[in-house]
């Protein structure tokens, strides 16, 4: 007679002990931790170098006349020389072959359509102009938000976007703002890209916030920025 469920002994599989369950999870978690730490330690310097190269590339892109650079940190209204690993608000000053100051590269970030858009922009404190930018991080919609890197009309806004500081050196003279496509009248306005208004607005907002917060401090310490390279005497 074939074995049917009725005549089989009613066997309930024994539950493994709690120790067995916990120890399995413990061993697997330890193995996992070991692998993660191993790969993290191995890739950490490579990732740091990649980030340094990406920043370096972006700095020399927004300051095309620069041949060398120095890193500064803005801390409680003061600007000091720093290294690239310093934590805080970093700005980069570019210098030409004769160690003459050619401009600043400044980080800015703002919420875009998908996620935070991060830029590095060029700033000429003497002229009070924002002179271009490089996108460090963006996951904006392809074909729409990504036009901030390719739309020639939009990029023309930054031939010299007015970001002058007032006489008291407390804020920008004019608030930088994004206006509807085709309605730009002033040098401090950003002409939006038709169809990607959210990203265009984000660019305008981030320049205004960064300008209001940092440009007055830069204006107060401009002589330090200009002479730092010569004082340091490095090639």
């Amino acid at each position: 007679m074939a074995n049917t469920p009725e005549n089989e002994p009613n066997e309930v599989p024994a539950l493994p002990s709690s120790f067995s369950l916990i120890s399995t999870l413990g061993v697997v978690a330890m193995l996992s931790g070991f692998l993660v730490v191993l790969v993290y330690e191995y890739t950490k310097p490579i990732i740091a170098e990649n980030q340094r190269l990406a920043t370096e590339r972006a700095i020399f892109k927004v300051l095309p006349k620069a041949k060398s650079r120095l890193t500064f940190i803005i801390n409680e209204g003061k600007i000091e020389l720093a290294d690239d690993k310093a934590k805080g608000e970093l700005i980069y000053a570019g210098y030409d072959a004769n160690n003459q100051f050619v401009g600043l590269a400044i980080n800015a970030a703002e919420q875009g359509y998908q996620d935070i858009v991060k830029l590095l922009y060029g700033y000429q404190p003497d002229k009070g102009c924002i002179t271009g930018y490089d996108v460090l991080k963006s996951t904006e919609t392809p074909g729409f938000g990504t036009k901030i890197t390719s739309d020639e009309e939009f990029l023309a806004n930054f031939n010299c976007l007015d970001a002058k500081v007032n006489q008291e050196q407390t804020a920008l003279i004019n608030v930088i703002k994004t206006v509807r496509h085709g309605t730009k009248k002033n040098a401090w306005e950003v002409d939006a890209i038709s169809g990607s208004t959210i990203t265009s607005n984000a660019v305008g907002r981030m320049f205004n916030q960064s300008g209001q917060a940092l440009h007055p401090i830069i204006a107060q310490h401009l002589s330090l920025l200009k002479t730092a390279k010569q004082q340091k005497g490095q090639p």
């Binding site: 790969v39 890739t43 990732i47 990649n50 980030q51």
Partner: peptide, 10 residues
């Protein structure tokens, strides 16, 4: 995730 960051940040 770490390996891709090490290969290419872009």
């Amino acid at each position: 995730d770490y390996i891709i960051q090490a290969i290419s940040l872009d």
